[in-house]
């Protein structure tokens, strides 16, 4: 009974383990420290975005603007680095800009009652336009000042053998996990997704929480933009296209309900890892990138159907 309960509650984790076992049987080069670190580093950007997405989806919202905010944040950050701005100032400013953009679409959702899908679709379009205006459609180089070299470390460096993006993602995860599980804000996020009317009548400042939630998503998208820009050593105007889809997939794979109110941030982390392992495995297996997309879609479909069924039967 206990085992069965654990199994139904941890389908994403079991899926990840099964997937990794299967791939390691197929290819001995999969289960090596180098390859695993590689997967973690490749996953970190999506994981960071997906954590913010988890907050939003838990309130029964959705954030389609993450990819555009990532690109804009990356562009602003690159030009600040190119202008020899002190690293910490550049990074913090970029994250604040991301949070502000998120808060803006959050305000539209919270105060004007516009559906999250529409509000963030508008934000996605407008911010992407902003990126194109700002970059004039061309990549922004990070310049030749010393600060650029330390900036690259954010994307490509290591601490104690662990890639810095992985460490950043891990820290972001810890903060998000703490906020969702141990703070008033976290409780309110779940309550709003569970039943907004109940939350409102219980004295929760629903509008404020919603703005904060979208600001968190924006801030984490900007953080992901920093990592990406540092790794590529330049900001691309087309960066982050369709990233919202991978982030939503990670959240859903992690067992969080799109209807809001139910889900766990640990699930999102596992969901992001499943996507990362899958990408890596398909590459190792030499599957053409065209087929990769089909395979990825199929796995997500399978996972969601399985998860839905286990939840229906456990009722």
């Amino acid at each position: 009974m206990k085992v069965k309960q654990f199994a139904t509650e941890n389908i994403p984790l079991i899926g990840l383990i099964v997937l990794m076992a299967a791939v390691s049987l197929y290819s001995p080069s999969f289960l090596t420290v180098d390859n695993l670190l590689n997967i973690l580093r490749q996953t970190s950007i999506n994981a960071v975005i997906a954590m913010g997405m988890t907050f939003v989806i838990l309130t029964a919202g959705i954030d389609l603007s993450v990819g555009s905010i990532l690109a804009f944040a990356g562009a602003v950050c690159a030009s600040m680095i190119a202008a020899d701005t002190p690293l910490i100032v550049a990074l913090l400013t970029t994250i604040v800009i991301g949070a502000a953009l998120g808060a803006a679409s959050g305000s539209i959702v919270a105060f004007f009652g516009v559906q999250a899908f529409i509000a963030t679709l508008v934000a996605m379009t407008m911010v992407r336009g902003l990126v194109l205006v700002y970059t004039d459609g061309r990549p922004i180089s990070t310049g030749n000042f010393d600060v650029a070299n330390s900036f690259y470390e954010v994307g490509g460096g290591y601490v104690a053998g662990i890639p810095i993006p992985v460490i950043i993602a891990a820290l972001a995860f810890l903060v998000c996990w703490y906020v969702l599980n141990f703070t008033r804000l976290g409780r309110y996020v779940y309550a709003i997704g569970g039943n907004e009317q109940v939350a409102l009548l219980a004295g929760v400042n629903v509008a404020r929480v919603k703005v904060i939630v979208y600001a968190i998503s924006g801030a984490l998208s900007a953080l992901a933009g920093i990592i990406l820009t540092a790794r590529l050593e330049s900001a691309q105007p087309t960066a982050g296209l369709a990233y919202e889809l991978d982030a939503i997939a990670a959240v859903v794979l992690g067992g969080t309900s799109l209807a809001g109110g139910r889900g766990r941030i640990t699930g999102t982390l596992i969901g992001a890892l499943i996507i990362g392992v899958l990408n890596n495995a398909l590459n190792i297996m030499d599957v053409s990138s065209y087929y990769q997309m089909i395979a990825k879609g199929a796995v997500i479909l399978l996972a969601v159907v399985l998860d839905g069924r286990s939840k229906a039967t456990s009722k």
């Binding site: 409780r187 309550a191 009317q197 939350a199 009548l201």
Partner: peptide, 21 residues
Amino acid sequence: KLEGLIQAHGLRQNMALTGLF
């Protein structure tokens, strides 16, 4: 159902919501 309790959530989360402060 509509305004009082979050049906899918636990007792603790529901009971503590209003007085969480």
